[in-house]
Simulated scan of single mutants.
Amino acid sequence: MENYKTVAESQTIMTELMIPSYSNFGGKIHGGVILSLMDKVAYVCAAKHAETYCVTASIDNVDFRASVEVGEIISLLASVNYVGNSSLVVGIKVLAENVKTRAVKHTNSSYFSMVALDENSHKPVQVPGLVLENETEIQRFITAMHRKELNRYYKQEGERIKSSFKNEDFLAVLKKERCILKQP
């Protein structure tokens, strides 16, 4: 198939040792370090698929499921779950392994929306289509489509609320919440 690629062609695994300088005040690996590594692996995966420079457009739901300890080895598994015209959704799963006990835990998951850009004009360019070869790949593609629809809906709802809510409407909603409203 011309201008189509399989998911496997761009799948990427990045592995790194978690060192003390990556830790936060609580002695665990700082979430920002993990996010930075996730961004790198998302770029590599997207660029392999698109065969051009890609930028991060958004990050959807970074779920921190378990902490990562100093001395553990993390593996970031990335694959293209969805392609649009110039955009790609890269799914990332982070696993941490304790080298002494060999215990492996799933620590993070996320979805990075990437956009392929022409290296000279910096304008979006079309990416290859995606060949879906099994049920998992089909489910991931459809789930990414639904996530895009929901994000579009949430954005529209936010705009609608901003433009149509009156101050007294906000006050009625806020009375049920744990907040104090101080107005000038």
Results as ranks from 00 to 15, higher is better:
Lys48Ile: 13
Gly84Thr: 07
Leu88Arg: 01
Val125Glu: 01
Ile59Phe: 09
Val55Pro: 00
Gly91Leu: 11
Leu117Arg: 03
Thr15Lys: 03
Ala50Ile: 00
Phe25Pro: 03
Phe112Lys: 00
Thr12Cys: 08
Thr15Gly: 05
Gln126Trp: 13
Ile19Pro: 07
Val70Pro: 13
Ala50Trp: 00
Met38Phe: 00
Gly71Phe: 06
Tyr22His: 14
Gly31Ile: 02
Val90Ser: 06
Gly84His: 07
Thr56Trp: 06
Pro128Thr: 11
Pro128Ser: 05
Leu130Phe: 02
Lys5Gly: 05
Val41Ser: 08
Ile92Tyr: 07
Gly31Trp: 11
His122Val: 09
Val104Gln: 06
Gln11Ser: 13
His49Met: 01
Ala57Pro: 09
Ser58Arg: 13
Lys123Trp: 05
Arg102Gly: 01
Met18Ala: 02
Asp63Met: 09
Glu16Gln: 13
Lys100Met: 07
Pro124Asn: 04
Gly71Leu: 11
Ser86Glu: 04
Val33Asn: 10
Val115His: 06
Ser58Tyr: 15
Asn85Thr: 04
Ile19Ala: 15
Ala50Leu: 02
Met114Arg: 08
Gly26Gln: 12
Ser110Lys: 03
Ala57Asn: 04
Ile19Asp: 06
Glu9Ile: 11
Ala57Glu: 01
Val55Gly: 01
Ser110Leu: 04
Val115Tyr: 03
Thr107Val: 05
Gly84Asp: 00
Ala42Arg: 00
His106Pro: 08
Asn98Gly: 09
Ser75His: 15
Phe25Leu: 13
Ala96Trp: 05
Met38Ala: 02
His106Ile: 15
Gly27Leu: 06
His106Trp: 05
Val33Cys: 12
Ala116Ser: 09
Val7His: 10
Ala96Met: 05
Ala116Arg: 12
Phe112Cys: 07
Thr107Phe: 08
Lys40Ile: 15
His106Lys: 10
Tyr111Phe: 09
Ala57Cys: 11
Gln11Thr: 12
Leu37Ser: 09
Leu17Met: 12
Tyr22Val: 00
Val7Gly: 09
Val55Asp: 00
Ser10Ile: 04
Asn81Leu: 01
Asn98Lys: 12
Thr56Ala: 04
Ala50Val: 01
Ser67Asp: 15
Val115Ala: 08
Glu97Cys: 10
Ser110Cys: 12
Cys54Pro: 02
Leu130Tyr: 01
Gly91Ile: 01
Gly91Glu: 03
Ala42Thr: 00
Lys28Thr: 13
Thr12Gly: 10
Tyr111Ala: 11
Val68Arg: 09
Ser110His: 08
Glu69Thr: 15
Ile59Asn: 14
Ile74Glu: 13
His49Glu: 01
Ile34Thr: 05
Glu119Met: 15
Ala50Pro: 02
Tyr53Asp: 11
Cys45Ala: 10
Ile59Ser: 10
Gly84Met: 05
Asp118Leu: 11
Ser86Phe: 02
Asn120Ile: 14
Val55Asn: 00
Lys123Tyr: 15
Phe112Met: 10
Ala57Gln: 08
Val7Asp: 07
Ile29Ala: 03
Val7Phe: 07
Val127Thr: 01
Pro20Thr: 11
Asn120Pro: 00
Asp39Ser: 04
Gly27Arg: 06
Lys5Asn: 10
Glu119Gln: 11
Ala46Arg: 02
Ser36Val: 12
Tyr4Ile: 04
Cys45Glu: 15
Ile74Phe: 04
Ser110Gly: 12
Asn108Lys: 09
Ile73Met: 14
Lys5Glu: 09
Thr52Ser: 12
Asn81Pro: 12
Val104Ser: 10
Lys105Thr: 15
Ile92Cys: 04
Ile13Glu: 14
Gly71Arg: 13
Leu76Asp: 08
